[in-house]
Nucleic acid binder design. Structure first.
Length: 932
DNA sequence: CAGCGGTCCTAT
DNA sequence: TCAGATAGGACCGCTG
């Protein structure tokens, strides 16, 4: 009977001290956890040597006892167009660890051989499990059907002298030795078991707990699916009576910890969830267990499917944990990546994303709650339980893993690598697989010296082109977008590491990017990266088609995650080429891509502004002037001009004598998309995305749109803000809210008067702020900033730094790098940075807020940047606490077309954009804010 | 007061 | 946020 399972994790174990055996851990189609042993896969790497290769081969074999086989193979070198393959050595070793052991020494043989040319090693730093997955076309979350016989892991490994105790604790439902296996196409995801946990410690004096001295007093679990009828469990390290059924009272800490590991292994989870458990709970448990064991306590801290114990490793600032056969998923970094929030404490995150309240026990009263036997203790238990629940809900309810599961499948990297790492591991997995198939070897990762050098050079990498916006308010703006610009450029122009002309010259023509360099034509040699991209793009198109046919919601979700994953991967290759730590780094390639991109957007602007210039709408047709022939009075003439663009987007302002409907503008959009796309090499495409009925362009990368996109139920309007203070997290909530309202009034209602009135109200509220009554208002004045480095490596004072230092002095608690620090500006003299203060502290001590700062620096400047477009001038200088002359409508006041409002006394009409001579049809009888 | 370095965060 | 990239706006506080 073949066994079908989905690969969750993979590694290897050495049997008999002599040969490695791959272990694939997974969850079976039958719901059981599986460990599948695969023997007979051997580690290897490549050596490019000069001189007599047979002699080198013999020497390698004679020199290194670990080498079992040396073959002469033909391979292409990693970079550059090459006409023919070169002979290299493929060196097989007994154990995976032999590869790094001999790779440096092997280069020294060059002197022994007295060889002339350069020697180089390739693929010497590929983890053995990844080597296996890549060579066998398997990968994370892939389904495998394995043939083989069941095996008792304990007996299997006892043969080896390494005979470790882990085997006794082997924690899989079934184990087999594979005699054969194959990948199977299966879109579904196995029924995974999720376990979330959270620990509570008792610090000595309300400070930070230290594992040497502060005991763990509670551990909570949340399960999905249930564990023996329990959705949650709370273990407490003291005798307790009268508790709920899901509370397990233990004699002491040691018993509790042992119960923890027992329940953990019995439940046998696939996904280990927590909130910041990667950085806190797991290292803490590890160290605490060590401390207790050192004192003579008996604890067996098994968490791995192979019986391995809990542990962690620190790399600089980051902690990595590994639970063999399982996947550790910390909700904190996932939430961070998925949502832009001002703070990422579990309290804030749960409230914002789940609308759930975190329960809290004040740190200073923790001991009191712990020794209590009644309500307070129950509250403490509830608080602990809730934290586990929340972490699990974040992952499950927000479906945070879907994307990562899809990325693992599509890239072939293990889920843990995808969740932990960036795009690098995924890109490299794809590259290694495709390079292997095409007989090309890949370079090892660069060392620190090389990447530092490259990092310096990277200043020569130019990026995208940002067009100067036509600042102001525009009506009827088409938004066009290049679909996957950089990947399609690479495909269209065959840009690749393997096509760049270096040593060998192809016959005939080459592709010459604006940035320089030369690439061979696809007919001469099709690039590997373009081929990978093409495949990803085809898969994505196919996936999107299947989404339309999808019958049930689950299938739809999986497909949607898949197409998103494909998009992410498509866009990863360009970044990788300019990434200093990449195995393959090529400024020539990266610059070729961006230079084509810049060229492209400028060219598009030229076509739209000048070659096309105007479009004639006649019935359902959007015609070029030359196609239109003689114009009739029913024709609508639309004049086009590019108002803005950033890298891969073009905003086209459509002007005509009268109103244009969304349908009419769409006709123009579709025509533009067709014309421009036709002028581009395949598969580059300019897509008609949406229409901004009104667009407010403030600066490069700063704008707000009243956007309409075609949907099933006609047109749906929404405001979209980019780059402005409403979307920036280093401004206070009051700024965002106020600005949003102003944008709404101005963009949709066209009512500048009301916007001004609104601002006036807000300012007056702030000025008359009464801290005693207005705690909500103070909430909305909180600013946040990320602590980006160690506090001593800042060159300048920073407000959040001030707060971090003050807090450390007061409570001893230190903020870790990467956390967002909330603060408010308090009243007083001196620099603003010195007056930053912890909001909590301000509330407790009734410290007055610097109202003036908030009005003059937080509310008014962003508002002013918007309203000055309409001629509203806010003379903040004139303004004093008596609210006199707050707004100074210098000469201009907008005339707004609102019948219910009295006409403005002032004559000047708003100057939205420079006046346009193009007024033909008499359709603009009423003047409105948006007419000109 | 203009200009600049340092810092943060966002757009693409 | 120990690993995709650059472009760019805005702020603060210092300097000349």
């Amino acid at each position: 009977m073949p066994m079908d399972f989905q690969i969750l994790d993979a590694d290897y174990e050495v049997v008999n001290d002599s040969s490695p055996v791959i272990r694939l851990f997974g969850r079976g189609a039958d719901g059981k956890s599986v460990c599948c042993f695969v023997p007979d896969f051997e580690p290897y790497f490549y050596l490019k040597a000069s001189g007599d290769l047979h002699a080198v081969a013999r020497l390698v074999k004679d020199t290194f006892g670990q080498v079992t086989k040396v073959e002469i193979v033909e391979k292409f070198e990693p970079v550059g167009y090459q006409k023919i393959k070169k002979e290299m050595l493929r060196i097989t070793t007994r154990l995976p660890r032999d590869v790094p052991e001999i790779r440096d020494d092997i280069l020294k043989l060059r002197e022994v051989m007295k060889a002339e040319g350069k020697w180089e090693v390739y693929e010497t730093d590929i983890l053995f499990r990844n080597r296996f997955l890549i060579d066998k076309s398997l990968g994370g979350m892939v389904w495998v059907s394995a043939e083989g016989k069941p095996v008792d892991p304990a007996r299997y490994f006892r043969a080896g002298s390494s005979g470790n105790s882990r085997c006794e604790n082997f924690a899989c439902d079934s184990s087999i030795i594979a005699s054969g296996f194959q990948k199977i196409e299966n879109l579904t995801i196995a029924s995974l078991k999720y376990l979330s946990f959270d620990i509570e410690c008792l610090p000595l004096d309300g400070g930070m707990p230290s594992p040497d001295v502060s005991p763990i007093i509670m551990i909570s679990f949340a399960f999905e699916p249930e564990y023996r009828g329990h959705k949650t469990l709370v273990l407490v390290a003291k005798p307790a009576e009268g508790m709920d059924a899901d509370v397990i009272s233990c004699r002491d800490e040691t018993e509790m910890l042992n119960r923890f590991f027992e329940i953990f292994c019995e439940y046998d989870p696939d996904i280990i969830v927590g909130y910041n458990h990667q950085d806190f709970d797991i290292p803490y448990i590890t160290d605490r267990v060590k401390a207790l064991v050192a004192k003579g306590e008996a604890i067996n801290p098994v968490v791995g499917r192979d019986g391995s114990k809990i542990g962690y490793r620190k790399f600089g600032l980051i902690t990595r944990t590994e639970f063999k056969g399982r996947v550790v998923v910390d909700a904190l970094p996932l939430v961070r990546r998925a949502f832009s929030l001002k703070q990422y404490t579990l309290r804030v995150v749960s409230k914002e994303l789940l609308s759930r309240e975190k329960l809290d026990v004040p740190p200073l009263e923790m001991e009191e709650y712990w020794v209590d036997t009644g309500d307070k203790f129950r509250k403490f238990v509830d608080y602990s339980r809730r934290d586990s629940e929340l972490a699990l809900e974040l992952i499950l309810n927000l479906r945070l893993l879907d994307k990562y599961i899809a990325l693992a499948r599509v890239s072939g990297s293990l889920l843990q690598e995808v969740v932990d790492g960036g795009q690098t591991s995924m890109v490299e997995t794809l590259l290694l697989r495709e390079f292997g198939l095409r007989d090309r070897v890949l370079l090892p990762k660069p060392n620190d010296g090389v990447s530092a050098e490259r990092y310096e050079m990277s200043s020569d990498l130019k990026g995208g082109e940002v067009l100067e916006p036509k600042k102001g308010l525009l009506e009827n703006v088409l938004i066009l977008d290049y679909k996957s610009l950089y990947p399609t450029i690479m495909m269209a122009h065959n840009l690749c590491y393997t096509t760049v002309v270096t040593e060998d010259r192809p016959e005939g023509e080459t592709i010459k990017p604006p940035s320089g360099g030369e690439f061979v034509l696809p007919e001469v040699s099709k690039g590997i990266v373009p081929s990978i991209l093409e495949d990803l793009l085809n898969q994505r198109t196919e996936t999107k088609k299947r989404m339309k046919r999808a019958s049930d919601q689950n299938e739809y979700r999986v497909l949607d995650a898949t197409q998103l994953a494909l998009k992410i991967l498509l866009n990863s290759f360009y970044g990788y080429s300019g990434y200093a730590r990449a195995r393959l780094y090529s400024l020539t390639l990266a610059n070729a891509v961006t230079s084509f991109g810049r060229h492209n957007i400028l060219n598009t602007r030229e076509i739209i502004n000048n070659t096309i210039g105007k479009i004639v709408l006649r019935g359902d047709a959007a015609l070029l002037l030359k196609e239109a022939g003689e114009l009739s009075s029913s024709d609508i003439i639309v004049e086009l001009s590019v108002a803005y663009g950033d890298t891969d987007s073009v905003f086209v302002h459509c002007k005509s004598g009268g109103d244009l409907s969304l349908e009419e503008i769409s006709l123009v959009g579709n025509r533009l998309s067709a014309i421009v796309s036709a002028s581009l090499p395949d598969p580059m495409e300019l897509e008609f995305e949406s229409i901004a009925k009104h667009a407010l362009l403030i600066a490069k990368k700063r704008y707000a749109l009243w956007l309409f996109e075609p949907s099933n139920s006609g047109w749906e309007g929404q405001i979209k803000v980019k780059g402005m203070e409403t979307v920036r997290r280093d401004w206070c909530e009051l700024t965002s809210v106020t600005l949003n309202r102003v944008l709404e009034l101005v963009l949709i209602e066209g009512d500048v008067d009301r916007a001004v009135e609104h601002v006036r109200e807000v300012v007056s509220n702030v000025r008359n702020l009464d801290p005693a009554k207005d705690s909500e208002m103070i909430e909305s004045l909180i600013l946040t900033r990320t602590l980006t480095r160690k506090t001593d490596s800042y060159k300048n004072k920073q407000p959040h730094l001030t707060v971090v230092e003050k807090t450390k002095e007061r409570t001893g608690s230190v903020s870790s790098i990467g956390t967002r620090i909330p603060f408010v500006i308090t009243a007083g003299k001196g620099l603003f940075v010195d007056r930053a203060e912890d909001p909590e502290y301000v509330r407790e001590h009734n410290i007055p807020i610097d109202v003036d700062y908030y009005i003059k620096k937080q509310i008014l400047p962003p508002v002013e940047r918007i309203l000055e477009v309409f001629g509203v001038k806010i003379s903040s200088l004139d303004f004093d606490s008596k609210q006199k002359g707050l707004f100074d409508f210098e000469a201009k006041k907008p005339e707004v077309n609102k019948p219910e409002k009295p006409p403005s006394e002032r004559e000047n009409k708003v100057k939205v954009q420079e006046q346009d001579p193009f007024q033909e049809n008499g359709r603009a009888e009423q003047s409105s804010l948006f007419d000109f």
